[in-house]
Every structure is written in structure tokens, then in C-alpha cells.
Design a protein around this nucleic acid. Structure first.
Lengths: 223, 223
DNA sequence: ACCTGAACACCGTTCAAGT
DNA sequence: ACCTGAACACCGTTCAAGT
């Protein structure tokens, strides 16, 4: 289930003693703090080490370079996020499609807005790393989870499920990111959140092939 | 019309001689090239200067620091992009809403995919700078242009135009960014493009207050 | 098995000197 | 009015020495 990682970005060692585990946690925590307070550009290895209460040398025992630190941080974060989405999708199996969308958007939204500064810091830290493998692994997991969910919808089917699935995910993830990038106030963010749900529902309504037990027979899927 | 810029990010001087103008152009061009070829992390001031055929000192006559270089590059880019959107919106005044959406999405899409590597490089360079003022200025211009366009639609009106407008822009911009971030192949990108148009149209259909001369009277705006 | 921190290479930035 | 490039401070990374 863990995200795959290219060799050159792998942590140098796994901690074997409790002292080492504590050190690793301290380094991660310090990285987030420095990222949030000083921003990615002023994050120096010395500063992170200082804040974590270890020497620079120690950091380099666990991470071959600064990049690897950001990489590991994002891997951790995306792993947790993918798990949340997977579990939400599992919980929605067989539900009506509108409820699925509502659950998906809200799960993602809440995960991102839970700790706004951390999310923003991570969005910005991503640029420092070659994050394609991370994004790919994350996308693969989420694609699979949501596709399975949509396929199980009680009131709709889709002529080209992969395309619909990809469009929905790209739209939802992108919209949330856009809200962060524009630094929208919470109230406007919430408005966009609600509108986004409406938008996804309207889209699905337009492209779905209604299943027999559903009354509405308005639109046919045109892909 | 130009984007406003905080003092500390302003170029130090405007070129007064033709030689200086050529130097500035060379620096911008070199920056893009290094960005595309080596990536933002390996972009050093020396390397840009070398590629531009000037000394480091010359660069620092025009830009007080590396950040300012990225900033100016993005300002230029966003200025051109805003102009394209504004002109597309002007051309659509009074048109039916579906055609507006098609034009808006396609204008933005084409501008971003015209030179894919440059777009990607700029997306990545943004993290190095404090780009909030840039995004704000750009968003302000585009918000105004699209809001005016939608308000002039021949076949629809909206109960809460600002919310609809914000949602559409956030969604379109975010989706395009997402496509780049996921590194989707062109064919899938095009598929998402088409679906995105469908999605926006379905959304507008759901929230619009139809104007009398339009035949369809299905949905009422629910904001 | 894990930690330290001085030492080295390289990059951002400056400024006295040039045309 | 514009350009040069050696010089300086600082940051990423290493490694010999410590517990």
C-alpha cells in the first residue's frame, strides 16, 4: 500500500532503536514548522536540524539530501490522504451517485482544510522535488478507489467511466488547489466547495446512462 | 493594464539604450531556457548570465535578486495571458452562454498548451517567489472580464453571478493545472478538456435563470 | 548504532574598476 | 549608461572522531 519511491530518494536507513525513531519524528515535525514559519526558500538544513535538536550530520544519516526530506514528507502526507479517500470510497459502495460525489468532494476538502498552513506549505514544498512518482502513485490509488465506487452506483452507469472518473478527479483536486493558490477567504472557499458539488452532480447527470430503477430519464451520455 | 508589483520585487532600472533592452531580452530568454533544460533547482544566476552572454553583475543591475527574475518572468507571462482572456471575453459579448464557456475554456487551454515545457517550467518556478500579488492582480483582471461577459449572455442570467464566476474560473484554472501536474498524455488531456466544457455547461444549465427568448425552461438557479 | 560539527565546494550577491 | 568578475557570506553536504 505504501507509495513506491525511486532509489535515490529513499531514506538511507530505517530506525532500529527508539532513539532513532524519535529523531526521525523530530526531523519531520521540525521541517513542517520551519516550512510554515519561514517558507520553503528560507528552510536550511541547519535550521531544521537546530529546531529538531540534532546536528546536521544526523539529518544526513536519514536523508541523502534536502530533496529527500521534502520527498519523504510528501510521501507520508499523500499516503494518509490516499487512505482517507479509499476508506470514504469503500463506505459509499452501492450508494446513489450524488451522495458519492458529495462524500468524495467533502472528504478531500476537509483533509486539505484541516490544517491550512500545513497544506499550503506542502503545496509549496512540492516544487523543490521531482514529485512525479509521488503524484503517479497517489493518482493510481485514488483513481482505482473512485472508479470502483462509481461503478457500483445504485442509480447510474457510464459509457466511458475512465474518462468521467479522470475528469472528476482532475477537476476536484485542481479546484481545491486553485482555492489555496488564490488565497480565498474561508467563506468564499466554502461557496466554491458547495458549487463544486453542484457542478459535479450536474456533469454526471448529463453524461450518465440512467439505470432502470431511477425515475429521471432526461439526458443520455454523450462522450 | 500592467500588473502591480511590490517595491522590493521591482526591476532596478528600465532600459534606456537599445543595448540594455537587448540585454534584458537575452536574460529572460536565457532564464526560460535554463528553467526548461535544467529545472528550477539547478538554475543558478551564473548559469543564466552565461547563457545570456552577460556577467552576473549585469543581471543584478536589472534584478535585485533571483526571486525578482522569476517574478518578472511570471508577471510578463500572466500579463499576456490576461490579455488573451480579456480579448476572448470581449469577442463573446452577447453570445449564448454555452459558446462563451467553450471559448473561455479553449482560450485558456490553448494558451497553456501552446508551449508545454514553458508552462510547466513557469508553474514550477512560481514556488520560488512570493507570487500572491501576481495571482491577485491576474485574478482580478480575469474575474472582471469573465463576469462582464457572462452578464451579457443572450440566453441566461444568474442569481449569484460572482459565485458562479468564481467557481468557473477556479475550476477551469485548477483543472488545467492538475492535468499538467499529473503529466497526462495529450490524448487524455484533450479528453479532459472536452469533458470540462461539458461539465461547465451542465453546471450553468443547473444554476441559470433562463431568459425569456430561450425555449428550455428546465432548471431554476439554486444558490 | 547513532550522533557531532568543523571543513569544503558552490551559489547568491556586492562593488570597485572598466568602457 | 552600462558592463565586468574577483571577493565575501552563507548553505548543502561530507567525514573523521566521538558515545
Amino acid at each position: 500500500m505504501a507509495l513506491s519511491t525511486p532509489v535515490h530518494l529513499t531514506p538511507r536507513k530505517k530506525p532500529r532503536q527508539t532513539r532513532a525513531t524519535a529523531t526521525l519524528d523530530a526531523i519531520f515535525e521540525a521541517t513542517i514548522q520551519v516550512l510554515v514559519v519561514d517558507g520553503p526558500r528560507r528552510l536550511t538544513t541547519t535550521r531544521v536540524a537546530e529546531r529538531a535538536g540534532v546536528s546536521v550530520g544526523t539529518m544526513y544519516q536519514y536523508f541523502p539530501h534536502k530533496q529527500a526530506l521534502f520527498y519523504a514528507l510528501n510521501a507520508r502526507y499523500l499516503d494518509t490522504l490516499a487512505e482517507k479517500i479509499e476508506s470514504a470510497c469503500r463506505a459509499q459502495r452501492g450508494a446513489p451517485i450524488n451522495q458519492m460525489i458529495e462524500a468524495l468532494v467533502t472528504t478531500y476538502w476537509n483533509a486539505k482544510t484541516e490544517r491550512v498552513e500545513v497544506t499550503r506549505a506542502l503545496y509549496r514544498s512540492v516544487v523543490e522535488i521531482d514529485n512525479e512518482p509521488l503524484i503517479e502513485a497517489f493518482s493510481g490509488r485514488v483513481d482505482a478507489a473512485t472508479a470502483a465506487m462509481f461503478a457500483s452506483a445504485s442509480d447510474a452507469a457510464f459509457a466511458d467511466l475512465p474518462a468521467v472518473n479522470l475528469t472528476l478527479l482532475t477537476t476536484i483536486f485542481g479546484t481545491v488547489r486553485s482555492v489555496f493558490e488564490r488565497n480565498l477567504p474561508i467563506s468564499e472557499g466554502q461557496a466554491v466547495h458547495r458549487q463544486l458539488v453542484l457542478m459535479c452532480i450536474a456533469y454526471l447527470e448529463a453524461v450518465k446512462i440512467p439505470s432502470p430503477r431511477h425515475k429521471d430519464g432526461s439526458a443520455t451520455g454523450e462522450l
